[in-house]
Structures are given as C-alpha cells and as structure tokens.
C-alpha cells in the first residue's frame, strides 16, 4: 500500500523476467507437442543465439595463422591453438587503448548528466504544477523517436562554431540531448506512480520542493534511476554513429577505431575480434550484473 508503485509496465516486466514460471494456459496449447520436444527445440534456439558470440570469443583467442587456416570450431579438436597473443597485441596498441579510455570518458559523463538533468525535469513534470505541463510532456513523448540524423548536420555546424567539434565534450553533449527525451519519459512515468499522499505527507512534514525531490522522490525512484543509468550507459557505450560524426582521431571511442580497421576484414580478424570483444566485455558485464534493471529499462523505453 505504501510502497511506491512503479509504472505498470515496469512492474509486469519484473514478473515476466524474474518471476517463477507458471503453468501458463497458453503453454498447454503446445503441451501436446510434448514437454521434451519443446525443451529440446528451445535449447537449440538458445544455442543458436550463443554460438555467434562464442565464435567471436574463440576467434579472438586464436592467432592470425590459425584463424586463416580454419574455423573457430577447430579448437574443439585442437585446443592448443588458444593463445593470448591477440590481446597482447591489443595491449600494445596505443590507438586502441586510447580509444577504450575515450569510450569511458564519453560514457560516464553522458550517463551522469542524463540521469541528473532528466530527474530534475521529470520531477517538475510529475509533481510541480505549472501551466502547459501537459503540452511540455507531449513534446517529450514526441521526441522519443526522433532520429539522430536530423541533428547531425546542424549540430556539426554548431559544434564547429563553438570549437566543440571533434571533442569528447561535443560527443557527450549530443548523447545527452538525444538521451534526455527517453530518460525524462521513463522517470516521469515512475515518479507519477509514486502515491500522491507521500508527496503531500512530505509537504506537510515541512519539506520544500527541493527536499521533496531529494529526500522522497529520488530515494523512492532508485530502481527506475538504476534502470535508466544502465540503459543509458550501454546506449552510449555501444554508439558508433554519433562518434563517427563528432569525434576526431584523438577523441574517437573504440567502436570508431575498430570500424577504421574494417576495410581489411579478412586480414586483421585477430585485431577486430579481440577488439570487438574488448568493447563487449564491459556492456556484457553490466548486463549480466544488472540484467533485471536493464531489461526493465529497455522495455520501459521501448520507443527509443
């Protein structure tokens, strides 16, 4: 009763992702196929989903000669091919290391800024009354699906004039701008789900608006903020397009640098596979550690 109610959508997701499996009625339809058949089929599907990533992982642990001589699956018969050579090469490659650092330098500030700015805005949209509130919220909803392409040329020009083009700051600003509509939308949905009584109780307890935000709404909104932060982190970390346009050689994140190697795909699979895997390690780790929050974030912000 007193617990803050998350937006409906987020709540059902929780049930779906981490709830205990139930004997669904729908599933009885397929029950005739036999439980075993279904399980085997699903296991095969799961295998299909894992194999491509596994292939890349294995390839990244084989040297160039082995990779050219045969597929990654030969390690099952000749495990001796596995080597750290590619990663050693990566560790010695300053461009790649620098780009990895750039990825961090772009991702972390973007995430923090998006969370802070959107939390403020979402609070205003949910709990402060002002004329035109519905209208502002509608604009935010409209911006949810805005393709970044419409802003690439003008913002490139703007950044050029401001000396931000090719800088990490520029890339971060662009990410923040296009991360905000979704972030505001997600947090607004969650914040409005907080019972009105709670906010009013705080108001009666003597809290000013700022304190209600900081001491009541933010702590209660923690799960939503976590979802948002993780989603935004992965979104920015995984970006290629924005950085491709706005970053220069010194500020390029890892995706951009690896993309530069793409032309010689066949010959530098060692660098590409290990580099790609390096770029995946952080998101995969974040995903596995916080999968529930991430799934909620993605579903809540499905429209992005």
């Amino acid at each position: 009763m007193t617990a803050a109610t998350a937006p409906e959508r987020v709540r059902i997701v929780e049930v779906a992702v981490s709830g205990s499996p139930r004997r669904g009625l729908l599933s009885r339809l397929v029950g005739r196929l036999g439980d075993g058949t279904v399980q085997v089929a699903l296991a095969v599907v799961a295998l299909f989903w894992l194999m491509p990533v596994f292939g890349l992982l294995v390839s990244s642990f084989r040297d160039e000669t082995d990779n050219n001589a045969g597929g990654w699956w030969t390690v099952f018969t000749k495990p001796a091919q596995l080597t750290l050579e590619n990663y050693e090469g990566l560790a010695a490659n300053e461009t790649v290391l620098r780009s990895f650092l750039n990825t961090v330098l772009i991702t972390v500030p973007s995430t923090v800024l998006v969370v802070v700015i959107s939390a403020l805005a979402a609070y205003a949209l949910s709990w402060i009354e002002f004329p035109g509130r519905g209208w502002v919220t509608t604009v935010v909803v409209g911006l949810l699906v805005m393709p970044v392409q419409v802003a690439l040329i003008p913002v490139a020009k703007l950044f050029g004039a401001l000396g931000l083009f090719g800088t990490i700051t520029g890339v971060v600003l662009f990410h923040v701008a296009f991360g905000l509509p979704f972030a505001i939308f997600l947090l607004r949905n969650f914040f409005t789900g907080i019972p009105r009584d709670l906010v009013e109780a705080a108001r009666m307890d003597g809290a000013r608006e700022w304190l209600i935000f900081a001491k009541v709404v933010l702590p209660i909104g923690k799960p939503a903020i976590a979802s948002l932060a993780i989603f935004e982190f992965l979104w920015v970390w995984n970006d290629l397009l924005v950085a491709l346009v706005f970053a220069d050689q010194d500020s390029a994140p890892i995706t951009v640098v690896l993309r530069g190697q793409l032309r010689q795909f066949g010959t530098n699979i060692d660098l590409l596979s290990s580099g790609a895997f390096l770029s995946m390690v952080v998101p995969l780790g974040v995903f596995l550690a916080f999968q529930r929050y991430f799934v909620q974030g993605v579903l809540a912000g499905s429209t992005k």
């Binding site: 009763m1 007193t2 019972p195 009584d197 709670l198 009013e200 109780a201 009666m204 009541v216 702590p219």
Partner: peptide, 12 residues
C-alpha cells in the same frame, strides 16, 4: 499534521 488514508509512509 495529517494522517492519510493510505498512511503515506516513506517506503525507503
């Protein structure tokens, strides 16, 4: 001071 129908306790 007010007592709310929902109690409005701070869950955190």
């Amino acid at each position: 001071a007010m007592v709310f129908q929902s109690y409005a306790l701070y869950p955190h």
